[in-house]
Amino acid sequence: MTSDALSKGSPWPLPSGEPVLRLEAVRKTYGSAVVLRDVALEVPAHSVTALIGASGSGKSTLLRCANLLEDVDDGAIFLDGEEITDPRIDQDAVRRRIGVVFQAYNLFPHMTVLDNITLAPRRVHKVPRDRAETEARELLDRLGLAGRAGEYPDRLSGGQQQRVAIARAVATRPRLLLLDEVTAALDPELVGEVLAVIRDLKDEGMTMVIATHEMAFARDVADQVCFLDAGVILERGTADRVFGAPAEQRTRDFLSRLTEAGRL
């Protein structure tokens, strides 16, 4: 990857003003449990959206729906103006344009770090091995993982594994990066190194949706914060507005619980 590849957001021209990701009245249920209810959201290009809320509020499900790992029951999701919830669409082609980083890293344990990162560029995007590996090494270098290319994931620390997972997700230069509680499984002293990487991605213009419990980080990095409660986006606004002057009682309750727990 050339050093400025991440910063130049779109490899294809966009209709002006069209958000990268748009959700319209999305509904998702598991059996009788309604996980997402009438969710609407717009994620403009080069912006960062933070999803906050208690466990089980629907943050992860929203991300899984956006990446088509789950089908929505109702409503529609648009990527660059194209409806990706249309059943006629090529789902693999949609996922190619979206990167995902998981809470539990989900690295492939039978592959080296380098092979983890080059798998999708080589097999999906048909990049020749030489070029894919050169770009992967540059990426590792920038993420502070030079010299780890030949290691197997299980030999790395949690923070290193999560940085490899981020490298794997951005190696294909996705249009949109979804991050699902990416620091939740990490020891406190390892959280910082991962957050620093995400901050750099923001500076380079990556469009991101981040489900997180790191409120200080969300406040610092997010252009837009959504508070989810029981599958509904209860409150949505700039970080300063949602954290500084929450309009909803439930948002205030949630934030004060975090403050008491020393997390804010």
């Binding site: 790992l69 693999d92 082609a93 989900n106 690295l107 798998l119 999708a120």
Partner: peptide, 12 residues
């Protein structure tokens, strides 16, 4: 989760 990770990268 291994399958989810692979599919999310665009692998068929």
């Amino acid at each position: 989760s291994q399958r989810a990770a692979a599919r999310s990268l665009g692998l068929t």
